[in-house]
Structure formats: C-alpha cells, structure tokens
Amino acid sequence: MNAVLRPVSKARKRRDLAMRASLGLATALALVPLVLVLGYVAKRGLGAWSWHFFSTDPTGSFLGDPGGIKSAILGTILMVALATAISVPVGVGVALYLTEYGKNSWFAKAVRYFVDVMTGVPSIVFGLFVFIVLILSGGVGGYAGWKGSVALSLLMLPVVTRSAEVVLLLVPHTLRESALALGSPRWRMIAKVVLPTALPGLVTGSLLAVARAAGETAPLLFTAAIVNGTSLNLGQRMNSLPVQIFTDVGQAQDRLVARAWGAALTLVVLVLLLTLVARYMSRRSRLT
C-alpha cells in the first residue's frame, strides 16, 4: 500500500479477528446443548420405542413390565386440543379487538400490557390458580383433564394474542379501506378480508402456542394429576407425556427411566414437528 492508505494497526486487526472468532465460538457453544439434548434423547429414546411401548398403558407396578405410554400420548393430545379450542378463538378475538377497535386507546394499551404480563407468569402459577378456582373451591369435582386444559389455555392465551396482533397489523391498511369503501360493514371486512389474509400467520402463532403447551408439565401436575390408565373422558384424571416423564425420572428405576427417555423422544418429535410446520406456514404467508 502506498502512503495515502495508512494501514490499520496490527493491534486493531488482531482485536477485530479475536472478537469475530469469539462471537462465532459463542454461537457454536449456544448450539452445543441443542445437539447434545437431541442426540441423547434420540439415542436413549429409540432404544425404548417398540409397538408394545406405544400400545399399552403404564402398569404402575414396580416389578416386571412397567408398560408403555399410550395413555400419556392420548392425554396430551386431548388436553392440548381442548386448550387450543379455548385459547385460539379467545386469543384471536382479543387481538382483533386490539387491532380493529381498541388501537391506541388507553384501554387497549392496558390490555396489551397485561397480556405481556401474562406471558411472563410462570406456568406453575397458572397450575396453582386453576387448582384454587376449579378444585379447591369445590363444586366441579376433583382432578380432571379439562382442568388441565384450562391451565394450558391460560398459558397459550398470551402467546396466541400477541402473535395474532402482530400478524393482523401486517394486513395492509389499503386492503381494509378498499373493503370499507365498497360499502361492506366492518364485521364483513374483518371476516372476508382481514382474517383470510392473516390466516397463515394466525396458524403459525397458534401452532407455536400448541407446541409450547404440549411440552408443559407444571400446570398439569395438580390439575389433571397423575394416572396410569387411558381415559378418553376429559372429565376424569388424565395422563400426559410431560407428567409421565416427570414421575418416571423421580422413580430412579432403570426401566422407568428408559420409559422416560422413550416418552421424551415422543414428546420432542411431536413438539419439533409442530414447530417446523409452524415455520413452514409462516414462510408461505405473503405478509412480511
């Protein structure tokens, strides 16, 4: 280089290189647990998988055959389905209120703030709340699957609401205005223009909420409780994958631990599938 281009000092270059390298290393470090967890779960979990594993309920006996996880899988699916049926309409409804009616009024701001607050509430506190209201207070019986669903839906609600609000805000203003300009009433504009346009994004947000709920243990522990047998009745106690894993780990018995790994693999596959489908849906969305 000639005199006009004064070279950057070696120290600056070294520092630049060192910092870039450390940032790259830290990123790699962040991904190590992901690889390790998924690796271990796949390795140990696959060892536990069998037809018997998926087709039988836990026996509850400490000796001999511990049984499979059929009731846990069915319980998780049923409870999460009911929780979704509760939280998605309510969550999207609140988001619609915020984007179409409330906008920047003080009330809408308060709602937005408290929805954010709900996002931060620990899931076990939701479990406590549902226990207090639906079990301790009496009147609607003891532990039951639907109470677990209520706890899960409380957890999903803020996730659905905030993601739906973001997506609804992405619907171009011109689309709304042109619908209103054609003389269609507001509700038709929302039903025929806003919701269909936002649909893929709404599905994405809901699926991510479903994935989160499917993996939650704490809110189910003292709402749906722990049970071995399969029940298709949401009015009764219900098993679930996370709770099954939690109790099996606590037993510290080799066969139960093996079942925990198998159940963990099942749960991880389920949750990752939901997450990836959600991502795929969001990529297909034309709103960015």
């Binding site: 280089m1 006009v4 281009l5 004064r6 070279p7 950057v8």
Partner: peptide, 11 residues
C-alpha cells in the same frame, strides 16, 4: 486484494 477496506474508508 492487498488493500484493506478499512484503510480505504479512512482515506
């Protein structure tokens, strides 16, 4: 290739 881009921008 021998030129450092940061030197260019400084000049």
């Amino acid at each position: 290739d021998a030129v450092d881009v940061t030197a260019v921008r400084r000049a």
